[in-house]
Amino acid sequence: MAYLELKNVCKTYGQGTASTEVLSDINLKIEEGEFVAIVGFTGSGKTTLVNLINGLLKPTSGEILFKGKPVVDTSHERGVIFQNYSLLPWLTVGQNVAMAVKEAFPTESKTERSKRVSNYVEMVGLGPAINKRPKELSGGMRQRVSVARALAMKPEMIIMDEPLGALDALTRGNLQDEILNIWSKDKRTALLITNDVDEGIYMADRIIPLKPGPRATLGPEFKIDIERPRDKTALNDNANFMKTRNAIIAYLMDIGNKRKSVSNAIYTLPDLTPKNFVGQF
């Protein structure tokens, strides 16, 4: 039995004729302790997939099983690192992490909890900034807080939704190493969603491309047979790396081109109306 399993999952937004099928027929199996990356174009439904797995959304049809039980709600067993950090700006770094710790370990005493908080804040290298507010931090530091918050709940699985997408290349590289470091310490299961093939190859055991939406579905998986710990500078000379990278990029380019040739230039936009507060008050 797989640790996390998605069976024929479909997700449709809207109803009737206005409905858009964002994800279609997603099948995925992740084993315990594995690091899986899903690589896809922007707008292909990556965030929808993440929200389905962490329990924020429910699939229109199909099943999501976590440790054999269907996912019906969010859970502390699955920690999420959001794309846009989603820190609460009115709380300090420590308070943001403490909020998660308090929910995940309600029976612990205050001192135990605050120890946990400072442990995790220090682990992501923000010890001196524990009393700062998010606005005083750089983008990379904010994402570290988000990482600390997700890990402080001691989740069994970490779900990362383009966690490093908004960061500059150098900070991104550092944080990749840090996340890998933390992951390799206690080998939790990890799912990384990204649009960067190199990042996927560097970090994951397996890469699965997400074909562009609407009606996005998963492509064939690519196994990454590179010894850990991986050395970023040596990767470029690694024949295995080059081969896998080229194969994935060729695959993605190919489906990209197919999509262009197939598309008859009708783009179905989601039918959204902004919430109108004006008339309500």
Partner: peptide, 18 residues
């Protein structure tokens, strides 16, 4: 209005932290 229009990200955080 303030209560009704809280940023969706914060609500998601609240949900994920349960």
């Amino acid at each position: 209005m303030g209560v009704a229009s809280v940023d969706k990200d914060y609500i998601n955080v609240a949900k994920v932290l349960k």
